[in-house]
Amino acid sequence: MDQHARRRGARAARSHGTVDVEHGATADPRRGSAAAEGAAGTSGTARTSGTSKTSRLAAMTERVPATVAWPIIAALAFGLFTIFRTHTAGIKGGPALLYGVAAAVVTGVLGLLIARYQSSMLTETRALSYGALFGLSMGWVYSLGGETILKSCIFGFVMGGIMFLSALYLFRARSAHEPHGAHRPRQPHGTHRRRLPAATR
Protein backbone atom coordinates (compact mmCIF):
# COMPACT_ATOMS: atom_id res chain seq x y z
CA MET A 1 0.00 0.00 0.00
CA ASP A 2 2.79 2.34 0.88
CA GLN A 3 4.58 1.41 -2.32
CA HIS A 4 1.51 2.18 -4.33
CA ALA A 5 1.13 5.59 -2.64
CA ARG A 6 4.77 6.40 -3.30
CA ARG A 7 4.42 5.58 -6.99
CA ARG A 8 1.34 7.73 -7.28
CA GLY A 9 3.15 10.58 -5.50
CA ALA A 10 6.12 10.27 -7.86
CA ARG A 11 3.84 10.35 -10.89
CA ALA A 12 2.06 13.40 -9.55
CA ALA A 13 5.38 15.11 -8.90
CA ARG A 14 6.56 14.38 -12.44
CA SER A 15 3.31 15.64 -13.90
CA HIS A 16 3.50 18.90 -11.92
CA GLY A 17 7.21 19.37 -12.66
CA THR A 18 8.40 19.07 -9.03
CA VAL A 19 11.03 16.54 -7.99
CA ASP A 20 12.10 15.67 -4.46
CA VAL A 21 15.87 16.12 -4.44
CA GLU A 22 16.28 14.58 -1.00
CA HIS A 23 15.50 11.03 -2.28
CA GLY A 24 18.31 11.09 -4.85
CA ALA A 25 16.31 12.53 -7.74
CA THR A 26 17.91 15.15 -9.97
CA ALA A 27 16.52 18.60 -10.44
CA ASP A 28 15.06 19.78 -13.70
CA PRO A 29 17.99 20.64 -16.00
CA ARG A 30 15.94 23.28 -17.76
CA ARG A 31 15.60 25.25 -14.53
CA GLY A 32 19.33 25.07 -13.89
CA SER A 33 20.11 26.27 -17.39
CA ALA A 34 17.62 29.12 -17.05
CA ALA A 35 19.20 30.19 -13.76
CA ALA A 36 22.67 29.99 -15.30
CA GLU A 37 21.53 32.06 -18.28
CA GLY A 38 20.06 34.64 -15.90
CA ALA A 39 23.31 34.88 -13.93
CA ALA A 40 25.32 35.09 -17.14
CA GLY A 41 23.03 37.83 -18.43
CA THR A 42 23.44 39.81 -15.20
CA SER A 43 27.24 39.54 -15.27
CA GLY A 44 27.25 40.38 -18.98
CA THR A 45 25.19 43.50 -18.28
CA ALA A 46 27.62 44.56 -15.54
CA ARG A 47 30.58 44.00 -17.84
CA THR A 48 28.88 45.93 -20.63
CA SER A 49 28.16 48.87 -18.31
CA GLY A 50 31.75 48.87 -17.05
CA THR A 51 33.10 48.74 -20.61
CA SER A 52 30.80 51.56 -21.70
CA LYS A 53 31.99 53.76 -18.82
CA THR A 54 35.62 53.10 -19.72
CA SER A 55 34.97 53.82 -23.37
CA ARG A 56 33.24 57.08 -22.47
CA LEU A 57 36.22 58.20 -20.39
CA ALA A 58 38.58 57.23 -23.20
CA ALA A 59 36.46 59.16 -25.69
CA MET A 60 36.45 62.25 -23.45
CA THR A 61 40.24 61.99 -23.09
CA GLU A 62 40.66 61.74 -26.84
CA ARG A 63 38.45 64.75 -27.42
CA VAL A 64 40.69 67.00 -25.31
CA PRO A 65 44.08 67.28 -27.08
CA ALA A 66 47.33 67.47 -25.15
CA THR A 67 47.89 71.06 -26.31
CA VAL A 68 44.80 72.04 -24.31
CA ALA A 69 44.97 69.66 -21.34
CA TRP A 70 48.59 70.29 -20.30
CA PRO A 71 48.44 74.13 -20.27
CA ILE A 72 45.26 73.99 -18.18
CA ILE A 73 46.81 71.51 -15.71
CA ALA A 74 49.98 73.60 -15.47
CA ALA A 75 47.94 76.78 -14.93
CA LEU A 76 45.93 75.21 -12.11
CA ALA A 77 49.11 73.96 -10.45
CA PHE A 78 50.67 77.40 -10.75
CA GLY A 79 47.57 79.01 -9.25
CA LEU A 80 47.74 76.70 -6.24
CA PHE A 81 51.44 77.43 -5.87
CA THR A 82 50.71 81.16 -5.97
CA ILE A 83 48.15 80.79 -3.18
CA PHE A 84 50.69 78.84 -1.12
CA ARG A 85 53.35 81.48 -1.75
CA THR A 86 51.08 84.34 -0.74
CA HIS A 87 50.02 82.46 2.40
CA THR A 88 53.64 82.04 3.46
CA ALA A 89 54.23 85.74 2.78
CA GLY A 90 51.41 86.73 5.16
CA ILE A 91 48.66 87.40 2.61
CA LYS A 92 45.70 85.21 3.56
CA GLY A 93 42.01 84.87 2.80
CA GLY A 94 40.42 86.56 -0.20
CA PRO A 95 43.51 88.40 -1.50
CA ALA A 96 45.53 85.17 -1.63
CA LEU A 97 42.74 83.42 -3.52
CA LEU A 98 42.50 86.37 -5.90
CA TYR A 99 46.23 86.18 -6.60
CA GLY A 100 45.94 82.47 -7.32
CA VAL A 101 42.98 82.83 -9.67
CA ALA A 102 44.64 85.70 -11.56
CA ALA A 103 47.88 83.74 -11.92
CA ALA A 104 46.04 80.64 -13.16
CA VAL A 105 43.97 82.58 -15.70
CA VAL A 106 46.86 84.62 -17.14
CA THR A 107 49.32 81.74 -17.39
CA GLY A 108 46.61 79.43 -18.72
CA VAL A 109 45.69 81.82 -21.53
CA LEU A 110 49.32 82.44 -22.49
CA GLY A 111 50.11 78.72 -22.34
CA LEU A 112 47.15 77.90 -24.58
CA LEU A 113 48.26 80.53 -27.09
CA ILE A 114 51.80 79.16 -27.22
CA ALA A 115 50.54 75.58 -27.53
CA ARG A 116 48.08 76.65 -30.23
CA TYR A 117 50.68 78.31 -32.46
CA GLN A 118 53.72 76.18 -31.60
CA SER A 119 53.36 74.12 -34.77
CA SER A 120 54.28 77.19 -36.84
CA MET A 121 57.32 78.07 -34.69
CA LEU A 122 60.89 76.99 -35.08
CA THR A 123 62.29 74.73 -32.36
CA GLU A 124 64.38 77.49 -30.76
CA THR A 125 61.50 79.98 -30.84
CA ARG A 126 59.16 77.50 -29.24
CA ALA A 127 61.62 76.65 -26.47
CA LEU A 128 62.27 80.37 -25.91
CA SER A 129 58.53 81.02 -25.59
CA TYR A 130 58.09 78.36 -22.93
CA GLY A 131 61.22 79.54 -21.13
CA ALA A 132 60.06 83.17 -21.13
CA LEU A 133 56.60 82.27 -19.82
CA PHE A 134 58.01 80.07 -17.08
CA GLY A 135 60.70 82.57 -16.09
CA LEU A 136 58.32 85.52 -15.89
CA SER A 137 55.79 83.50 -13.87
CA MET A 138 58.35 82.24 -11.37
CA GLY A 139 59.97 85.67 -11.01
CA TRP A 140 56.60 87.26 -10.28
CA VAL A 141 55.70 84.61 -7.70
CA TYR A 142 59.13 85.00 -6.10
CA SER A 143 58.52 88.73 -5.72
CA LEU A 144 55.30 88.08 -3.78
CA GLY A 145 57.38 86.91 -0.84
CA GLY A 146 58.74 90.42 -0.29
CA GLU A 147 61.96 89.93 -2.28
CA THR A 148 63.58 92.82 -4.12
CA ILE A 149 63.02 93.41 -7.81
CA LEU A 150 66.64 92.57 -8.63
CA LYS A 151 66.48 89.21 -6.83
CA SER A 152 63.16 88.42 -8.47
CA CYS A 153 64.52 89.24 -11.94
CA ILE A 154 67.61 87.11 -11.39
CA PHE A 155 65.52 84.22 -10.08
CA GLY A 156 63.11 84.46 -13.01
CA PHE A 157 65.99 84.65 -15.51
CA VAL A 158 67.63 81.53 -14.06
CA MET A 159 64.38 79.55 -14.01
CA GLY A 160 63.56 80.68 -17.54
CA GLY A 161 66.99 79.60 -18.74
CA ILE A 162 66.55 76.17 -17.18
CA MET A 163 63.15 75.83 -18.81
CA PHE A 164 64.55 76.95 -22.17
CA LEU A 165 67.35 74.38 -22.10
CA SER A 166 65.01 71.62 -20.97
CA ALA A 167 62.43 72.40 -23.66
CA LEU A 168 65.13 72.70 -26.32
CA TYR A 169 66.58 69.32 -25.38
CA LEU A 170 63.12 67.75 -25.38
CA PHE A 171 62.21 69.19 -28.77
CA ARG A 172 65.57 68.19 -30.26
CA ALA A 173 65.14 64.65 -28.95
CA ARG A 174 61.77 64.52 -30.70
CA SER A 175 63.08 66.15 -33.87
CA ALA A 176 61.43 63.51 -36.07
CA HIS A 177 58.02 64.84 -34.96
CA GLU A 178 58.88 68.48 -35.49
CA PRO A 179 56.56 70.48 -37.80
CA HIS A 180 59.55 71.36 -40.02
CA GLY A 181 60.82 67.78 -40.13
CA ALA A 182 63.95 66.24 -38.71
CA HIS A 183 67.10 68.30 -38.60
CA ARG A 184 69.13 67.09 -41.54
CA PRO A 185 72.87 66.61 -40.94
CA ARG A 186 75.23 68.60 -43.11
CA GLN A 187 76.75 66.75 -45.99
CA PRO A 188 80.50 67.01 -46.66
CA HIS A 189 81.64 69.56 -49.20
CA GLY A 190 81.88 68.23 -52.72
CA THR A 191 79.39 65.40 -52.33
CA HIS A 192 76.67 67.27 -54.22
CA ARG A 193 76.87 66.43 -57.90
CA ARG A 194 75.16 68.56 -60.38
CA ARG A 195 72.77 66.58 -62.49
CA LEU A 196 72.99 67.27 -66.21
CA PRO A 197 70.47 66.40 -68.85
CA ALA A 198 70.81 62.95 -70.37
CA ALA A 199 71.80 64.37 -73.78
CA THR A 200 74.87 66.23 -72.46
CA ARG A 201 76.37 63.33 -70.47
Rank of each mutant, 00 (worst) to 15 (best):
D2R: 14
A5K: 04
A13L: 07
A13Y: 03
A13P: 03
S15L: 05
S15D: 07
H16Y: 05
D20M: 07
V21G: 10
A27S: 09
A27F: 02
D28Q: 04
P29C: 05
R30M: 11
R31H: 06
G32L: 10
G32C: 13
A35V: 15
A36W: 04
A36N: 11
A36F: 05
E37K: 12
A39E: 11
G41S: 13
G41R: 14
G44C: 10
T45F: 01
R47H: 04
G50Q: 14
K53A: 11
R56V: 14
L57N: 09
L57Y: 09
A59Q: 03
A59I: 05
T61D: 13
E62W: 01
R63G: 08
P65W: 06
T67D: 14
T67H: 07
A69W: 00
I72H: 00
I72N: 05
A74F: 01
L76P: 00
L76A: 01
L76V: 06
F78L: 09
G79W: 00
G79E: 07
F81K: 00
F84Y: 06
R85M: 02
T86N: 00
T86K: 00
I91L: 03
K92Y: 00
G93T: 12
G93P: 09
G93Y: 02
Y99C: 08
V101W: 00
V101K: 02
V105H: 02
T107V: 06
G108K: 02
V109H: 01
L110S: 04
L113N: 05
I114F: 03
Y117L: 09
Y117D: 13
Q118F: 00
S119D: 11
S119G: 11
S120E: 14
S120L: 13
M121H: 02
T123M: 06
T125G: 04
T125W: 01
A127K: 03
Y130Q: 11
Y130L: 15
G135R: 07
G135L: 07
L136Y: 01
V141M: 13
Y142T: 15
Y142N: 14
L144G: 01
G145W: 00
G146S: 03
G146I: 04
G146E: 02
G146M: 01
E147G: 05
E147Q: 12
E147W: 02
L150H: 05
S152T: 10
C153I: 13
I154Y: 00
I154Q: 03
F155V: 14
F155W: 07
F157R: 15
F157N: 14
M159S: 09
G160T: 14
G160A: 14
I162P: 05
I162A: 12
L165W: 03
L170Y: 05
F171A: 12
R172S: 08
A173G: 11
S175E: 15
H177W: 05
H177K: 09
P179Y: 02
A182G: 14
A182M: 06
H183P: 12
R186P: 03
P188A: 13
P188C: 11
H192N: 04
H192F: 03
R193N: 04
R194M: 12
L196P: 11
L196G: 13
T200M: 07
R201K: 07
R201A: 07
